[in-house]
Design a protein around this nucleic acid. Structure first.
Lengths: 279, 279
DNA sequence: GCCTAGGTCCCGTCT
DNA sequence: AGACGGGGCCTAGGC
């Protein structure tokens, strides 16, 4: 068995000093059951993240119940009590417990037992290990922000379904329309009968987006020999891009990708309800 | 950096022998980027399971897109190419890729980059590591069977084996029967010879379940040109759903998933006993 | 490839 | 608390 301990600092490493108070990472290779029990108790009380790899079997009882026969798996226990039992294949854990469950660890008949209990609904996952290949516990530092964006395609579909997202009276004619050097996202006419080209961007539009729109507008203007309006639809536009947009006589319309995907979902829902109640 | 290698046998351990052909577990603590690239390439080509713990940021592009700013996380890559990025809290991975994606690993500007690409839909998850706390790769041996009880399938089988769970005189004719778009869970006739459609839910049935049943009843009524009864079988039904159910002239029957699985177990037991004692 | 439906779905939100 | 709907849902099964 070897053990390596890293300190708080990003690069300083403490070797074989389990008592160092700053230790953030503890790795035990091939620990015996007693040591594993100690390490896990320590980890659970300190709300450390735990990874156990070893030979285990698992019982689950709750809304349903299940039995997993022995085999080698990866078990993760997180700071908030979430538990995941992963096999060597597949996206999903074979057994699990969502966050907020209470953890117990003990030795029973020479096996390591980890019990994760949750209430409402009452559910119990019990993991039995007869061999632990390795066990590690961590204090992970993670303040990184996570941002999720809906797709540009959602925005396009939402605009086609609800053209007033661009402006009142806008009527789409076509989309993904081929113009010489590419595809126009949406193409239509405004309330005064003028041709409109819409360029959609899922994120803050920069000068590149403006130039792309300008290119399409210019191409169409020439090929049709008539006035063409250009509208940039995006959640935001950068200062420089707005400047450029105005100087080229183009318009900006704020469109939020998330709202677009919600709008689409609502439309779909209504379609189904209408089908049932007015068939 | 230390490294420990276990052999095929359950207890025999090979220390610091990276060339041993039987190695099943490789653990690298605090590896540098080049070593990590080598280990990962080796692991991916040998379809080993990988766990990486370190400081990383993640980009996702596909149906939607997302950005995860730097922080310490656990990344798991499985034999079949499934990828999971886990933060220190929560049941769900913050980023992921389902099984079947193609993996690339390389060094770029002193960072370790793991790229997981999937097609249909085309999706890319890119993970950048600037520090790796530890990296381990495994050949997990896992042939253990998994059994789940009290699923909707158990309820279906129980109803087919014991149709009085629905009502006295009910006779099932078919199950998983295809109707225009979808499948009827159980299909049969009641004591008065009327066609019955049964929709099974393993938990409290909501309005959606009622609408699902209504859809099947309506479709069959039209295609058969005769009366069709609809029965929703579930442990509970929500107030609103019950209201809707009644207004549509459908019935509810309380059926408990656990009792279904017990019934099946008892039937199975009896079958085995009968086989041995009255062959 | 599409569509349909289930899941120990999980999770946020609202009543 | 329950109820409802969304999800990069994932996954399995049919066509």
């Amino acid at each position: 068995m070897s053990e390596d301990i890293y300190g708080e600092g990003p690069l300083k490493i403490y070797w074989r000093n389990p008592l160092h108070s700053d230790r953030r990472i503890v790795v035990c290779e091939n620990p015996d059951i007693d040591e594993a029990v100690n390490r896990l108790n320590e980890a659970f009380s300190e709300k450390r993240v735990v990874i156990v790899v070893g030979s285990c079997w698992v019982d689950y009882r709750g809304r349903a119940s299940s039995k997993l026969e022995p085999g080698e798996r990866i078990v993760i226990v997180k700071e908030d009590g979430a538990v995941l039992v992963h096999r060597s294949k597949g996206y999903e854990p074979i057994n699990w417990q969502p966050s907020g469950c209470i953890l117990q660890v003990f030795k029973e008949e020479d096996n390591l037992v980890i019990k994760a209990v949750k209430r409402t609904p009452h559910e119990v996952v019990t993991m039995f290990f007869d061999r632990i290949h390795f066990l590690s516990t961590f204090k992970l530092v993670d303040e990184g922000e996570f941002s999720l964006y809906a797709s540009e395609e959602d925005m396009q579909r939402a605009i086609l379904a609800e053209p007033s997202l661009i402006e009142d009276g806008f009527k789409p004619i076509d989309y993904e329309r081929k113009v010489k050097p590419g595809f126009v996202d949406v193409y239509g006419i405004d309330r005064d009968g003028r041709i409109v080209v819409v360029e959609i961007k899922r994120r803050t539009a920069g000068k590149e987006a403006v130039l792309q729109l300008a290119k399409y507008v210019e191409t169409l203007r020439r090929s049709l020999g008539r006035e063409v309006r250009g509208i940039l639809a995006a959640p935001e536009i950068s200062r420089d891009a707005r400047q450029l947009l105005l100087s080229l006589g183009l318009d900006f319309r704020r469109v939020d990708p998330k709202k677009c995907s919600e709008l689409l979902r609502r439309k779909e829902e209504r379609r189904i309800v209408d089908f049932f109640y007015h068939p």
